[in-house]
Nucleic acid binder design. Structure first.
Lengths: 167, 167
DNA sequence: ATAAACTTTCAATTTTTTCTGAAAGTTTAA
DNA sequence: TTAAACTTTCAGAAAAAATTGAAAGTTTAT
């Protein structure tokens, strides 16, 4: 496999994985492109490399920035903006985990709390709803806490966590 | 909040969460409905409860069965089939984690291995591609292993894992 | 103040995904 | 073996999501 083929394969694989996990393909591909780039890229360069429109590029770059995994770089003497992504995989994973937790998991935990706190009218249906949503709430809360514990160990969190789990 | 409202809220929240994570809304909602049901439900009952068509119900039930989180129940003397989901949240999470790993993560790990193994032609671009995809590969492999370690501790894996991580 | 260089926004379009419903298929009872 | 009861399949329709491209907006240099 040559460079060009490998690069395309990486970008397309990353795009598909994104889709499978509810992330816009273009967004995932822009991130992939920046991730393997040796230097920051301009909007124009991204558009050309991925064959996507200016609007699409602009929108998805903004999203990546909101997610905290891409940043604007200003190059002195240059009018246009350049973009890079977090290059350290562990930092990247940490950011993504925290953001998905904050945006998607925590709101659900809150709702599960509400639902499992309804008044128990002693009917079987209500009892089951309370029991099951409470179990789900507790699991989600513990899993979320665990994720944060794993990811919050600074520097090489993954190896540290794995070692603890192996023991 | 009354039972009906709480039930609807749970089903719709679960559907939305599914969507956010790349899972079909109907599939998530069927699972949610079974999860809080006090007894197995027939296709007819599911269709009525969720206001979805027979085709949709049939297709998504089959998917849930393929995922290993819903099973058919045959009630003696009854012609039609009934369905239940895994009621234990920890078992449920274990199943889902293993399936997503097997279907979605492991194939990507394999591809990352291929890409990071291309011949190093000493250009900066190639070196960067290899370096970054290798880092991603290693992270994905370790994270996947970690997930299995967590989830494979039988019985109350989540608390056990959390305790290890806290130490 | 003006214009060039660049970015953002968003209505319209395209693509993808999901859903429906009815025909075809299967199983069971008599 | 027939027909009733039920499930699956899948072409077409509908809905949702992604994408385009051009107009509007912003910034900077002169």
């Amino acid at each position: 496999m040559q460079y060009k083929e490998a690069k395309d394969k990486f970008i397309s694989t990353w795009g598909s994985l994104g889709t499978l996990w509810g992330i816009n393909k273009a967004m995932a591909q822009i991130q992939a492109l920046l991730f393997i780039s040796t230097k920051p890229l301009s909007m124009e360069e991204i558009m050309v490399a991925l064959k996507i429109s200016r609007g699409n590029t602009s929108t998805n770059l903004r999203q990546l920035i909101d997610w905290g995994i891409v940043s604007k770089i200003l190059i002195t003497g240059e009018r246009k903006e350049y973009f890079t992504t977090e290059k350290d995989v562990q930092e990247l994973a940490r950011h993504i985990a925290k953001e998905r937790s904050r945006r998607e998991i925590q709101p659900v935990i809150k709702i599960l709390k509400e639902i499992s706190s309804i008044k128990d009218d002693k009917t079987d249906n209500t009892k089951e709803l309370i029991k099951q949503t409470k179990a789900l709430h507790d699991l989600a809360e513990t899993a979320d806490l665990m994720l944060h514990k794993i990811v919050n160990q600074e520097q090489n969190w993954i190896t540290k966590s794995l070692l603890k789990l192996i023991k």
